[in-house]
Computed example of a mutant assay.
Amino acid sequence: MSHTPGYTVNCSLLFTELPVNERPRAAKDAGFHAVEFWWPFETATPEQADVDAFVAAIDTAGVRLTGLNFFAGRLPGPDRGVLSHPDRAAEFRANIDVVVQIAERTGATGFNALYGLRQDGVDPAEQDRVALENTLAAAEGVAKVGGTVLVEPISGSEAYPLKTAAEGLAFVARAKDAGADNVALLADFFHLAVNGEDLAAVVREHAADFGHIQIADAPGRGEPGTGELPIAELLTASRAGGYRGPVGLEYKPTVPSAESFGRLP
């Protein structure tokens, strides 16, 4: 069985019953040709042998790595990214080199830099300044592989400051104004819907500006068909509106991963 080449399987939420380096092969066996991951290592600067094993797993599976998160702290969990955390800026900067190395070896071009939560005792304006500086450094780093830094509004934490497409796009605009052309919005339809967005309007007004799309149904974050989102219509409208990239399957399957693809648009 082969699926449309327009999908990329998020192997940090799918096939989680398998070790990380076995998931690309599982995606291929399920009929897909592309995968994406959150940061797949415990630390921002893993051992070279661990990086090599991850790259080899993608190569031997015969899939393409389309996207990768920058180091984001403990995810899922208490951190939700470190981009805006002054005390972790050195960690984030060191991570950029590792991300670029993986990109050079795999061809990945989409890199999600999760913003991070507001921190007690830290001026929000200082966090935003650090986030912008780190984004500019990340954008400069991935520019050499034709990459884009992705900015994602997410749900589930009041302390995460980017909740709407407008808030994400405002930060993207700040980065562009500061000289980084390769920064763009990651439109995760699940997170935006949970945060109360009119998804049809967001797609209608901004599809051509999306750097990446990820899908899960809402409520629940399960596979398409388990919730109430008109995912097929939203994807059709996104293509019509100028979105040309892959669509990340970033959902929590309610059945074994290999059985969860039956209702994809």
Rank of each mutant, 00 (worst) to 15 (best):
G110I: 11
L68M: 09
N182D: 06
L83E: 03
D128T: 08
G141W: 05
E47S: 11
V20E: 12
V20G: 12
G77M: 10
K176W: 07
A90S: 13
A113C: 08
G245K: 02
P256D: 00
V145M: 03
R174S: 08
R105Y: 10
D188P: 06
L185K: 01
F37S: 10
A90N: 13
A187M: 09
A216L: 10
G220E: 03
E126Q: 13
H191W: 07
F261S: 03
D123F: 00
R204T: 14
L234D: 06
T148S: 12
A207V: 07
G107M: 03
V20N: 15
A258R: 05
L192E: 07
F41L: 15
N21S: 12
F210T: 06
R263P: 15
P86G: 03
G146Q: 07
L199D: 04
A27P: 00
N95F: 12
P224Y: 02
A240C: 15
A218N: 09
L185W: 00
L199P: 07
D177T: 12
E140A: 11
G248A: 09
L185Y: 00
F171P: 09
R80F: 15
E36R: 02
D120P: 13
E167L: 02
D87N: 09
N112H: 08
V55Q: 04
V55M: 07
L192R: 05
E197M: 07
E47G: 13
R221K: 04
T8R: 13
A165P: 11
S84M: 08
I96E: 12
F41V: 13
V247I: 09
A113K: 02
A27F: 05
S257N: 04
V203Q: 02
R105M: 02
T106Q: 00
R93V: 09
T226S: 15
A53D: 14
T109C: 11
S257Y: 04
A34Q: 11
T60K: 10
A49C: 12
F171S: 09
R239Q: 14
P46Q: 14
L229I: 04
L136D: 08
F70V: 03
N69V: 05
L83R: 03
A232G: 09
R239Y: 01
G146A: 07
Y160L: 02
T135G: 13
T43E: 15
A207M: 05
A166W: 12
F189D: 09
Q48T: 15
A258L: 11
Y160P: 05
A166G: 08
D188Q: 03
G168T: 03
P5W: 11
Q48L: 14
L150N: 01
F210W: 00
T236V: 13
S84R: 04
D97M: 08
E197G: 04
V142G: 08
T60N: 13
A138R: 02
T16Y: 14
F70S: 10
V82M: 09
D198Y: 12
T148W: 10
D198L: 05
F70C: 10
V9C: 03
D79Y: 11
D177L: 10
A138P: 14
